[in-house]
């Protein structure tokens, strides 16, 4: 009964996330204030983009470690173009082209040469990190000021940030693509068994290249969001933190790291879970040395809780 189990896994993370909210609310009522909710909604945008792109890659049975440092690189690409031309449009085009190219490159190496995605994208992680420092003129931070960056970074519609609405729209689009198109089904099929997918007539190579281009594009978007929110770019931003948070979000949301299984809804709740922890640690003024302990323990606890609920359901089902 794979469908039932999927729903169950998704529901678990909803319970866990809501329980966490309640705990934080009891500690500090400000946690559920409208202001704080909207702050969380803005903070999760770059992580959410990483999570979304990563979702398709992971479901297809791969992983893209280059997404975090990639988004830092693309933020700098945008900054460099903005610094040179003073305009945004060209920079955006450049980011989209470069990010698709990176994804294509990853995908080809994985699909056509059969290299493990982990290795290919790990080497891209290092390369993107290096390039991000080499393409920016030395000794410079580039400020990104102007209407576009203000719009992306701070403008709201009905009290919701445009950047968050953009993320929601992408999640909705991803939901449709994943659940209601043949491509979505092909991604799942490849993740379950490449051999069977191939026998069923799926062009496995093309699917793989496709998921990496999606993840590349998502890291390009994440770079644009990141730089717009910051108002400036510099090399050495913490891309790996973003990457790990993004992966944590989808796996907490029930996506199987080995591929073949996961839900967009689960990924979204996992994203909220990570966003809430990050926010609460700052909001509740948790002493710094405890941040990491807390984060690690909460993730472990969530994994454990998910497992317990999941196991008990299985037992009931028997």
């Amino acid at each position: 009964m794979p469908d039932l189990s999927r729903v169950m896994r998704e529901r678990n993370i909803i319970f866990v996330t809501l329980a966490l909210c309640l705990v934080f609310y009891l500690i500090s009522p400000r946690f559920l204030s409208l202001d704080n909710m909207s702050a969380i909604s803005r903070q999760i945008v770059p992580i959410g983009l990483i999570a979304l792109g990563q979702f398709f890659v992971v479901v297809s049975g791969n992983i893209d470690l280059s997404m975090g440092m990639g988004s830092v690189l693309f933020a700098i690409v945008l900054g460099v173009f903005f610094g040179l031309t003073g305009g945004v449009a060209l920079g955006i085009v450049a980011v989209i082209v470069c990010s698709l190219a990176l994804g294509f490159f990853n995908g080809v190496l994985v699909a056509k040469l059969g290299l493990p995605a982990f290795i290919v994208t790990l080497s891209m992680l290092f390369s993107a990190q290096g390039l991000s420092g080499l393409i920016i003129p030395r000794g410079q931070q580039i400020f990104l000021m102007g209407d576009f960056f203000r719009f992306i970074g701070a403008e709201t519609f009905l009290g919701l940030y445009w950047s968050f609405l953009f993320l929601l729209a992408l999640f909705a689009l991803a939901w449709v693509v994943y659940n209601h198109t043949s491509w979505g089904a092909a991604v799942i099929a490849v993740g379950n068994s490449e051999e069977n997918a191939r026998l069923a007539g799926v062009n496995v190579d093309r699917v793989k290249i496709g998921v990496f281009m999606v993840s590349g594009l998502c890291s390009g978007f994440a770079g644009i969001m990141l730089s717009s929110r910051m108002g400036f770019v510099q090399p050495g931003l913490d891309g790996n933190g973003l990457l790990l948070d993004g992966i944590a979000a989808i796996i907490i949301g029930g996506t199987l790291i080995l591929g073949g299984r996961g839900t967009i809804g689960g990924a979204f709740w996992g994203l909220l879970f990570i966003g809430i922890i990050n926010n609460a640690l700052n909001l509740l003024n948790v002493e710094d040395v405890w941040h990491q302990v807390f984060k690690g323990a909460v993730i472990l606890a969530a994994l454990g809780a998910n497992w317990l609920l999941w196991q008990s359901r299985q037992v009931e089902a028997h």
Partner: peptide, 10 residues
Amino acid sequence: YPSIAIATNS
């Protein structure tokens, strides 16, 4: 850098 950008933007 980020503090100024955020305050100005809000």
